[in-house]
């Protein structure tokens, strides 16, 4: 009776553990396929024109003619402006908020702020888009904004900032909490004022984690599409600042993917290639920034 049972258990163990290894491979397949397809379909679009020209009109190649491919210059510019302005708003607010959560834990706002920041990070980004659109729509109706339209780069940047703020605040808080209390006490005991203790000692010790959080938030903003669709709009023309419709790379990918013309589809793949490479670069960079300082978390 016993031996067969024992062999069965051993076989079951091997099979199930083997399936776990297969699961890892299954997770790698989509990543590999996405990278492969981006290179295959997008690498051809990456020419100097890709960065220096704007998209051509949609075109179906007929016998003997070819379609111009063009580039995505203003969408790159638009992404940089949108993410740049969003970072300008969100990084200071998020980091200051993170400092409050970590350094003033006993103050009355700390608990509700932490809880609501967590709630905010769980809200779908398209809802954030609806929210920010609603605010600016209201402003426009009240006649408070006159120099730009509701659908504009400014609205888009604010939407991205709203997405970034709670992420930055919470990662910043967690990074600062890893800084030992003794370090703060040592500094305060020397008579160094609180603000300087926090800025010079705490913030610089927890730098790695704060930078990681900031980088990840910037990366997330750079890849966001849905809220921008509702707030920043899209155009294939050239842009002047953020006051009008402002194309971003992710929105361009969506628009051109749906349009299904060969030349613009190739631009979409090219943009996807650039975007994915940027994201991978940032997330690897963020990992490295974390490894140097406190909290070198293992897998």
């Amino acid at each position: 009776m016993r031996p067969p049972k024992r062999i069965r258990r051993r076989a079951k163990s091997l099979v199930l553990l083997g399936l776990c290894a297969v699961a890892v491979l299954l997770m790698l397949v989509p990543l590999a396929s996405i990278l492969y397809e981006c290179f295959l379909n997008g690498a051809g679009a990456i020419t100097p024109a890709f960065f220096l020209k704007n998209p051509p009109p949609p075109c179906n190649p007929t016998a003997g003619t070819t379609c111009p491919v063009g580039g995505v210059q203003d969408a790159i510019l638009g992404t940089l402006l949108l993410v740049g302005l969003a970072s300008l708003i969100a990084l200071p607010v998020g980091i200051l908020g993170g400092i409050y959560l970590s350094e003033f834990q006993d103050r009355p706002l700390a608990r509700p702020a932490r809880f609501l920041a967590d709630v905010m990070t769980g809200i779908p980004s398209i809802v954030i888009g609806v929210f920010v659109f609603g605010i600016f729509y209201f402003f426009a109706q009240e006649g408070w904004i006159t120099t730009f339209s509701v659908i504009s780069g400014y609205t888009g940047a604010v939407a991205l900032a709203v997405i970034m703020i709670p992420v930055v605040a919470r990662t910043c808080e967690e990074a600062l909490r890893l800084v030992p209390v003794s370090l703060r006490e040592a500094s305060l005991a020397l008579g160094i004022p609180r603000h300087r203790t926090i800025l010079r000692i705490v913030l610089s010790s927890g730098r790695g984690g704060v930078i990681t959080g900031a980088l990840l938030a910037v990366a997330r903003a750079g890849g966001e599409t849905a809220p921008l669709l509702l707030t920043a709009g899209f155009t294939t023309g050239s842009i002047a600042g953020l006051s009008g419709w402002t194309p971003a790379l992710p929105v361009l990918i969506y628009q051109f993917a749906s349009a299904q013309y060969p030349n613009t589809t190739q631009l979409a793949w090219g943009a996807a290639l650039i975007l994915v490479l940027m994201m991978l670069l940032i997330s690897v960079g963020a990992r490295l920034a974390l490894r140097n300082k406190f909290g070198g978390r293992s897998a």
Binding site: L28, L31, C38, A219, P250, A257, V276
Partner: peptide
């Protein structure tokens, strides 16, 4: 494996 999280959702859509 974690890099999969860094791929923007619009790229998943395109793929």
């Amino acid at each position: 494996v974690d890099l999969l999280a860094a791929v923007p959702s619009v790229v998943f859509g395109l793929w």
